[in-house]
Amino acid sequence: MQPVSREERIHSLDMMRGFSLLGIFLVNMLVFHSPFLYINPYSWYQTPEDIAAFSFIDQWVQGSVYPLFSMIFGYGIAIQYERATARGDVFWRFGVRRMLVLLGFGLIHAFLIWNGDILLTYALAGFLVLGLLRLSWRFLLGIALALYALPNVGLAALLYLGEQMGGVDPSQYAAVQELQDSISAYGLGSFADIFSQRIDDWIYTNGWGLFHLIPTIILPYVLLGVVARKTQLLERFSERKAIWITLIFVGLAAGTFIKFLPYTLGDSIFTVYIQDIFGGPLQAVAYAGIIAFLTSIRVFQKVFHSVALAGRMSLTIYIMQSLIATTLFYSYGFGLYGKVDVLAGTMIAIGIFILQLIFAQLWFSKFMYGPLEKVWRKLSYQTFM
């Protein structure tokens, strides 16, 4: 097994990763600097600036970038599988080893740095994908759509019926005690207090929900990425522009319509759920097509070359964002937790990402791989590269 060379990389894939990292950071920043998990953001923010900043993130970024990143993750797995198969190598052993390393990164990140980790979830979904790679793209597409549509449509219907029957909507209320605990731990507490609160927050956002999140949300996205690779959607982009144009217009129109429902029909547990579950993935597909089109333009490639470089070291950039943000906002750093509004937090995220682009440019002028990517490759390929 050998790593993908610089010449073999798909530039548009790196560009998508890079822009996804910015979007993920904008969303994560809401949790980094405030007890976002325990409020109703549609009624919590009061100033016009905060309302506008949150609305932009909610309508165009939240729920729309992590599906894209998940699809890219699946695309990458499929590339590695195809190249290993072409060489006659046994891929599953390497794949399992690679997912185990990613799982290790996820455990460290989730419980020692930040509770909002997604690496652990990707690794667990990756194990499931390894057993499905031999299937045809049509079969994989059917599995992905069935896993996604059946449980999520069913749950959406139950939420709608509950709303129509006049049930209490818990999303309309702030969890006051949990909110105060978060501010006390992250803003003022010791490292032990922060660790304890991090565990509580992880259980609150994940817990048993992982058994729903992985097979019905993350796994279908990853499988769609495998399907995209098997059908050569990016490699044969110039031949399939009609498909991409259709995906862009349908995804953007339908996805944006659904994403705006909490603002047109009112925010409820039903509208917020379908906003992210159905509107987000549609926007994600449209974003993938837009980036693929723009990457085919030489000027765009040059101007945003550093974004693609950040995409090449996505693991490093992602964990670096958590390290920088927790240092800024937690008590063991600058202690700004709960003291920054949405607009300021958004500007901070953009500023940090720009610095990361500069870092990526400088790093790749000297090295072939990002620092954490180097460790991941070494442990996966069991060799120095």
Results as ranks from 00 to 15, higher is better:
R198F: 00
I183Y: 06
I218V: 15
D201K: 09
I203G: 00
Y173N: 05
V227M: 06
L179E: 10
S182W: 06
Y186K: 07
S184G: 02
A175Y: 14
S182K: 04
Q197N: 10
V222D: 02
W208K: 08
G225H: 05
G225C: 08
G207V: 13
H212R: 13
A175S: 06
R229K: 15
D201C: 05
G207K: 14
L179R: 12
I217M: 12
V227K: 04
L219F: 10
L219K: 01
F211I: 11
L213W: 08
L188A: 11
E178I: 05
P215Q: 08
I218M: 13
L223N: 01
I217W: 09
A174M: 14
S196Y: 04
S184K: 05
Q180N: 14
D193F: 05
Y173S: 14
L224M: 14
L188F: 12
T231N: 05
A192W: 11
G225L: 08
Q232M: 14
I183S: 00
G209V: 04
I214T: 05
I218L: 15
I203C: 03
I199Y: 12
W208F: 13
R198Y: 01
D201Q: 14
G207N: 06
Y221V: 04
I217L: 14
L224W: 06
Y221I: 04
R198I: 03
L179V: 09
L219M: 11
T216F: 15
H212A: 12
S182D: 04
I194T: 11
A185N: 07
F211P: 02
Q180D: 15
A228P: 00
R229P: 00
Y204M: 06
Y204K: 02
F211R: 07
V176D: 06
N206P: 01
T205I: 12
Q177F: 11
Q180T: 10
Q197H: 07
T216V: 06
P215M: 07
G207A: 10
I214A: 13
N206V: 05
V226M: 12
I217C: 08
V222K: 00
V176E: 14
Q232K: 15
L213C: 01
E178Q: 09
L224P: 00
T205G: 03
D181K: 11
D181Y: 11
A174W: 09
F191Y: 05
T231G: 03
G207S: 12
V226E: 03
H212L: 11
Y186H: 03
L219I: 04
S190D: 07
V227T: 08
G187F: 13
I214G: 09
L188H: 15
Q232A: 15
K230M: 13
L224R: 01
